[in-house]
Design a protein around this nucleic acid. Structure first.
Lengths: 196, 196
DNA sequence: CGAATCGTTCAAAAGCGCGTGAAACTATCT
DNA sequence: AGATAGTTTCACGCGCTTTTGAACGATTCG
């Protein structure tokens, strides 16, 4: 086998991973930007995109070469993407290498991330706001009834507004997420729903 | 309510800005967290929140004291918030100090930011994806027709999917934004739309 | 007009997240 | 088992962002 490898190298075999096409570079950079905007790491977007556009499973080495990343970066990025459930590791019998493939259903992917990230954060915020209301009443009780009556009144009112808004956000997210399976079917309904 | 400035100064130079209440601290920290998640700076969220909960215009000095920030930080943060249109500077005749007040309509604020930030980014992404499609055809033409035929086919298909999704996102944002004025009225409709 | 107060700017410093690369670890092949 | 290829982990350092604080500018009042 060892000679076999030599033979391949002699035969001018590419180092296994071709470089990125221009089109791949554009898309992966763009999605990398979006990921940063959304508070993720740029390389998560880039790696996912390359896998997505490849259409077939790739090895870590191929990703390393195509994206010019260190082995460590590739491994950690793939680990994170795996934890988010947007990249799967394929184990192939009789091959030392692991292969990775992207979740192909993009909308499913987005909705999963929304559920696990945005929703958790919003729920947490609602709880915090309600804690703040409690703290407010405690404060009013502790100080004289006069002390900051006006200030307290404004706060009560506005914190309630914030809670309302957060709950609206939660409701919207839930609607998006639960519609994730219907996929395209509700898209036209959404469009029709708009007023012109 | 209008207890004299004199009284305060006699009482041992209360440095004009009381400290934050516990309730204010909780809410401003929470919103600061959310802002970071959304890709903004923590202090933007904290400053806006303190102004919002104050219900009345505050001076830069008061913000500095309540949030323990340097003068520079307050100035720059207020500048940014102003550019986003979520904080107004009030100029009072016969007072050296500037006062600042928060946009009180939270939903209006959110939708404005979405329009200027998220939407711009999505539009830009759509353009980039379309550029990528062009680059893809150029590449196919340049290389032989055989070369990476399969790879090209997958890319075409998937980049189209991305464009579709991005356009869906844009449509949804537009719907949200244009409904911003109706405010509460469409909220129930949204809730009813959900399946249980 | 000059003193006093407040706001803004900007260069330097601090803080922090990210990628790196080598070492440890695991799995496959001879 | 030993050798080799592949992967993961982690301490370190680099670069970017944020914060600071002092100098400068602006506005009001005596």
């Amino acid at each position: 086998m060892g000679e076999g490898i030599q033979a391949r190298e002699q035969a001018g075999e590419q180092p296994s991973g071709e470089s990125l096409w221009e089109s791949e570079r554009i898309v992966s950079d763009t999605i990398g930007r979006l990921m940063v905007l959304w508070g993720f790491k740029r390389n998560m977007g880039r790696v996912w995109t390359v896998l997505y556009l490849a259409g077939e499973p790739l090895t870590a080495k191929q990703l390393r070469e195509r994206l010019q990343l260190s082995s460590g970066a590739v491994s950690m990025t793939l680990g994170e993407l795996g934890r988010w459930g947007v990249v799967r590791k394929l184990w192939v019998q009789g091959d030392r290498r692991d292969f990775y493939e992207a979740e192909a259903n993009v909308w499913k992917m987005v909705s999963r991330v929304m559920r696990e990230r945005e929703r958790a954060e919003i729920v947490q915020a609602i709880e915090a706001f309600e804690d703040a209301l409690l703290a407010l009443e405690r404060q009013v009780a502790a100080r004289g009834r006069e002390a900051g009556a006006a200030r307290a009144r404004v706060q009560r009112e506005r914190i309630h507004k914030l809670i309302e808004l957060a709950k609206l956000g939660r409701t919207m997210l839930d609607a998006l997420i639960s519609n994730a399976r219907l996929d395209a079917s509700w898209l036209p309904r959404f469009k029709l729903g708009r007023s012109r």
